[in-house]
Design a protein around this nucleic acid. Structure first.
Lengths: 334, 334
DNA sequence: GCATCTGCTGCAACGGTTTGCAGGAACCAA
DNA sequence: TTGGTTCCTGCAAACCGTTGCAGCAGATGC
């Protein structure tokens, strides 16, 4: 029903190859021929069929974007910026939601592989080995995970965690709890390691609570354990958990930041809107989405393996305050 | 490089058509032939190329999903549930972000049209006329808009708005402000009309403030105007605006719900996490995403034009309280 | 034993586009 | 006029599957 290249060719009195070239290699056809072809195309509403084009060129001008959970506000800006950047470069994007399930993740990549020029895999839950295998089947860029030989976009969560613990230690906290994320999360491991080290260096005790689902509810459930652990400060794997925790603590009558300080991770949009406003480590998600697409599309040029580390940032708001060991001597007063 | 149907045919010692049928019409090939073909396919990692398949069958098994803003938390669950339902039915989804721009919206539908079996258009900003035109080019389902002849999924925002105003009137509010949404939003018009009527019926005065961008910032900016208008209660076009407004009022030293009651719209996930927790009209977004996909995929059967109206729900939390005209006589005390 | 039917498989056209190759016209220089 | 360019256009193969049709073998019916 929609016009094909043949319809245009017939109507314009030229061969189909000329029509094709009028679109994809404008310099190769005579100016007046080109004008005529374009005019006819417009009149007939002709648009080249991407599937047919892909079949022969091997380039689909589509990319796949796979995340653990589309509805997680952490990913929303990433998807948005990836989509925007893709579109700017003439690409469309497929999104896939793995629901935190590694098998779905793998299956999704494979299913998409044939209809995309590459896949951006965000916060994968798959073991490295499988990611490498997928990488051989289709161009791949991984976000939030370091995999040897696979180009990746990372956010410097280790430094973020260090900064967060330093911030809490500076405030005089010595009993700190860490709400860890999903077991398969590389980010969570990074945070945990950096937090442990920093806590040790600062002479604070770090209690790791988890793994937890990276949701509000995952945080709320740890409210009890947090007070039992006697922590005066908490670093959460992400803002959602931090907010859930604050919620849970509130239900227990524990004031934040009065009795417990809470630091989140990500700086999702809503952490500015809660009360108390959340102190958190800002993750450069928008930049990451943009960068992942760029990396994917230029991949053949630069060669695989290029990785990118984006900086994180401590944003101090109102969910942290001075702890029991505030050193009035050297730390100054607040 | 990836295996094609011909590789499998050669390796299995059968004709390509047999391989094809082994996948798409298993009953038509002999059982042992089928087994052999499948075994070879597995060994070679063969998967039918969807583009080639689409070229001849005319079905891509993809659908397009277009929203005004992916990062808006209202759409996230919708995208998620649409993706899930699509996948359950063997479809993948493209997402497009129009950035609230009608032209982008139209262009996106057209660009996607050839590579999808249909498009779900959410909260379109395009005039009805253009939507009808698009509908003739590709199967279309519209969410949050009623367009004659185009199948649509609606949420009963009119009833929602009525319920909200009734709630506020019941609480004794007589000066109510409405923060309207984007000018091109059908939903916003519906809300406005229903709110006006209800306010009139209840003897309350409704001041319409807007149009506003449907964001936190759009709400914050109206904090001043709200107090100037002397309103003791506000209904916002969406939760984001409501939260922004509360934020703005807080900066002005106006307590919510002490001096001003605020009702939001949508019941996005985070409205449970703010303080005060937001009273809002819950929109059945997840159901809508699911339904839109179903409607789109069964479209040829039921014929176009089928529309679906999903119910909304008032969720009373802590951002509303008794107003100046509390009728202690009939309304009971609180 | 012959015609008929059923079940499986092969053949070849087809879908819409791209692209290497070749041919033709117009141009220039000698 | 001839030979060599340069530009433009047409031809046809190719991409990877699907599907209507025909053929063939074996089984069935009489």
């Amino acid at each position: 029903m929609p016009a094909t290249i043949r319809d245009v060719a017939r109507e314009a009195g030229v061969h189909v190859s000329t029509v094709s070239r009028a679109f994809s290699a404008p310099g190769m056809v005579g100016p007046d021929t080109r004008r005529r072809v374009l005019a006819v195309s417009a009149r007939l509403g002709y648009r080249p069929n991407p599937a047919a084009r892909a079949l022969i060129t091997g380039r689909t001008h589509n990319i796949g974007l796979i995340v653990a959970d589309i509805a997680n506000p952490f990913f929303a800006p990433l998807i948005r910026s990836a989509q925007r950047q893709a579109r700017a470069r003439g690409y469309h994007i497929f999104v896939g939601d793995t629901d935190e399930d590694p098998d779905t993740e793998q299956e999704l990549v494979r299913a998409l592989a044939k209809q995309v020029d590459g896949v951006v895999l965000c916060s994968p839950r798959l073991p490295n080995r499988d990611i490498v295998a997928l990488c051989e089947e289709t161009p791949l860029v991984v976000v939030n995970r370091l995999v040897r030989g696979v180009p990746s976009v990372l956010m410097d969560v280790a430094t973020g965690a260090r900064t967060a613990i330093d911030h809490l230690a500076d405030l005089g906290h010595r009993e700190i709890a860490l709400l860890s994320g999903p077991h398969a999360s590389w980010t969570s491991r990074q945070i945990r390691r950096a937090a442990s080290r920093t806590a040790e260096r600062r002479g604070a005790r770090l209690t790791v609570l988890g793994p937890n689902p990276p949701t509000e509810d995952g945080g709320r459930r740890q409210a009890g354990p947090v007070v039992e652990a006697g922590a005066s400060a908490v670093l959460a794997y992400n803002d959602l958990m931090a907010l859930g925790l604050i919620e849970g603590l509130d239900e227990l009558g524990v004031d934040v930041p009065g009795r417990v300080s809470v630091v989140g991770f990500d700086d999702i949009a809503l952490s500015r809107l809660t009360r108390p406003k959340l102190t958190t480590i800002a993750n450069p998600v928008t930049a990451a989405g943009h960068a992942a697409v760029d990396l994917l599309l230029q991949q053949p040029d630069t060669g695989a393996g290029a990785s990118l580390m984006l900086p994180t940032d401590l944003v101090v708001r109102r969910s942290t305050s001075a702890g029991p060991h505030t050193s009035t001597g050297t730390g100054g007063r607040r």
